[in-house]
């Protein structure tokens, strides 16, 4: 099969990026009209497509899982301690939002925890069965978090249920604040600090799902209108955001 020079460039770029075999990379690129960015998007949104490169070594994944599982943990779970060790080995810092993308991909039931099933299924979906491949996948996930808005939004919305304490309907404010800092410092640059100030000094309530979800939309809204000149209280924003805007306007006066 022969490619044009630009196709070849895209191909090598894609393979380098995603660590997929050439056949898979070519297939995905072709499906996206050789548009590199679209192809990457579609690859990361449907990580399963990567596994067509060849069967992942399931036994190897179980072995890795057992390597990092701590003796005190149950046979099929990572406790927080195991997770920390595993992340460390991968060079993944806890201050990295990619943790969320990975947790989602490995179907982590709650913060810092993984199950054997989620781990094995997730990694084989992603198509990695060695620590090296895992590292590559993680950097690919990181790229997606930065450049793929739809992917980011999915991870953001997913985070709420994952991060909230089991059995509760809402996320304690202090936790929410940490997650926002982690996730939104780039997306919500003009307002994040003040939003947190507002919540911690005026609002002082835990964060329900709707507020969490709508804050993403609000962050996107502020990117287009940083001074909130066109913000309309009559539209469907939750009242906490209405109140924030009031607070903001009062301060800006």
């Amino acid at each position: 099969m022969s490619y044009t020079s630009s196709q070849r460039a895209a191909l090598s770029h894609f393979m380098q990026f995603t660590q997929t075999p050439e056949r898979t990379a070519a297939k995905i690129l072709k499906a996206n009209n050789w548009h590199l960015e679209f192809a990457l998007d579609s690859y990361y949104q449907n990580p399963g497509t990567g596994s067509t490169g060849g069967p992942t070594n399931i036994a190897a994944l179980h072995a890795i899982f057992d390597t990092y599982r701590l003796p005190d943990d149950g046979p099929d779970v990572f406790s927080i301690g195991a997770t920390m060790g595993y992340f460390e080995a991968l060079g993944l810092g806890l201050e990295d939002p990619t943790v969320l993308a990975l947790s989602k991909a490995l179907d982590s039931p709650s913060m810092g925890e993984f199950t054997r099933k989620g781990f094995v299924d997730g990694w084989s979906q992603l198509g990695a069965d060695t620590m090296e491949k895992m590292k590559d996948k993680i950097s690919a996930l990181r790229k997606s978090m930065e450049s793929n808005e739809a992917f980011f939004k999915e991870v953001y919305l997913w985070t709420f249920n994952w991060a909230k304490p089991t059995g509760q309907k809402s996320l304690p404010l202090e936790n929410a604040v940490e997650w926002w800092k982690l996730l939104l410092s780039n997306k919500f640059p003009d307002h994040l600090d003040r939003w947190i100030e507002f919540l911690t000094t005026k609002w002082n309530k835990s964060v329900p799902k709707d507020t969490w979800n709508m804050l993403y939309s609000f962050a996107v809204f502020t990117q287009g209108d940083p001074t909130l000149a066109t913000y309309d209280e009559m539209s469907s924003w939750p009242s906490v955001i209405d109140t924030y805007v009031e607070f903001y306007r009062e301060q800006e006066k």
């Binding site: 309907k169 809402s170 329900p208 799902k209 709707d210 507020t211 209280e233 009559m234 469907s236 924003w237 939750p238 009242s239 906490v240 209405d242």
Partner: peptide, 14 residues
């Protein structure tokens, strides 16, 4: 008042 209605909608969403 509209803000009060919105608060009620928030509650019902929750």
């Amino acid at each position: 008042k509209v803000p009060d209605i919105k608060k009620c909608i928030d509650i019902l969403l929750e």
